[in-house]
Each structure stands twice: as structure tokens, then as C-alpha cells.
């Protein structure tokens, strides 16, 4: 769908031109077809993740934005957080059940930054080891039971 490529193009331009604080699109690692993006995140000042650098990998299916993008943490530093598994999968409802086509790469990044920022104690999800062993490669195939999102 050509208009959807257009939307991704626009999203990319906007993010490159006017990136929100702590969010940077790695344009070298972003594929030419725009179906895969890499976004660098920085832990917000005054939070447990201050100064840490993380990387998010976005994958867009042909029905984006009507279907949600696949979003995982990649690279050497996976944040230690109660909603982030050690394989990079993120338990965040807007990435599956609560996805809306009116959301965007930017709003997803901001939600993840704010999820990190509100963390009070750095620890892995309680079911981390079993999940990482048994999960599908694509986090969208996981039937998530959303953890209490006040954490």
C-alpha cells in the first residue's frame, strides 16, 4: 500500500528533523524499504537508567499502521526492567492489544521511555527464565498478560 509507505516516510522525516529528547533514529541501520528501523534510546536524567544507552528494533508489516509494529530491545544492553525480558521482548499493551493506527513510532518510543522512567527497582520479570526459553521469536505471538503497569 503506497500511502502507508508514505506515512512511514513522513514519520521518519519528522523523527530525523525534530527528535524528542533521548530518541534518535539510526538512519544507517534503517532499511531502504523502511520495513526495519533501529532507534537509539537514552535513559532519562534523574531515573534509574540515566546515562544508559539502549537500542530498539522496529519491524513493520505490510498492514502497518493497521497492524502494530514488532518492537524489541536489541544490542548489548537490554534494560533490566520488570516489563523487559532478557531477550529484549517488552510487555507493553500498546504493542499488541491496545495498539491504535493513530499511534506512531514516536509515540511508541515515548511510551517505552516513560515505562523505563517510572521504574522503582531494576529487576527482570518474575517469569523471565521460563519465558525466554519457551517464547516465540516474535513477541506479537505471545499472549501477554499485562503486568501491573504502575511499576
Amino acid at each position: 500500500m503506497a500511502s502507508m509507505e508514505k506515512r512511514l516516510q513522513k514519520e521518519l522525516q519528522a523523527l530525523l528533523r525534530d527528535p524528542p529528547l533521548g530518541v534518535t533514529v539510526d538512519s544507517d541501520k534503517t532499511s531502504r524499504s523502511l520495513s526495519e528501523w533501529t532507534v537509539d534510546l537514552e535513559g532519562a536524567p534523574g531515573t534509574l537508567y540515566q546515562g544508559e544507552k539502549f537500542q530498539l528494533a522496529f519491524k513493520f508489516g505490510p498492514r502497518y499502521p493497521f497492524e502494530s509494529p514488532q518492537v524489541i530491545f536489541t544490542g548489548s544492553n537490554i534494560p533490566v526492567h520488570p516489563h523487559v525480558y532478557s531477550n529484549g521482548h517488552i510487555c507493553l499493551s500498546i504493542l499488541t492489544d491496545d495498539w491504535s493506527p493513530a499511534l506512531s513510532v514516536q509515540s511508541v518510543c515515548l511510551s517505552i521511555v516513560s515505562m523505563l522512567s517510572s521504574c522503582k527497582e531494576k529487576k527482570r520479570p518474575p517469569d523471565n527464565s521460563i519465558y525466554v526459553k519457551t517464547c516465540s521469536k516474535n513477541p506479537k505471538n505471545t499472549k501477554w498478560w499485562y503486568h501491573d503497569d504502575t511499576v
Binding site: 500511502s3 508514505k6 506515512r7 513522513k10 499502521p65 493506527p101
Partner: peptide
């Protein structure tokens, strides 16, 4: 003219 938030047109 209004921008559609989904397709940005």
C-alpha cells in the same frame, strides 16, 4: 482541510 492522523494525508 484536515489531516488524517493515520495516513497523514
Amino acid at each position: 482541510n484536515i489531516e488524517c492522523e493515520i495516513c497523514t494525508l
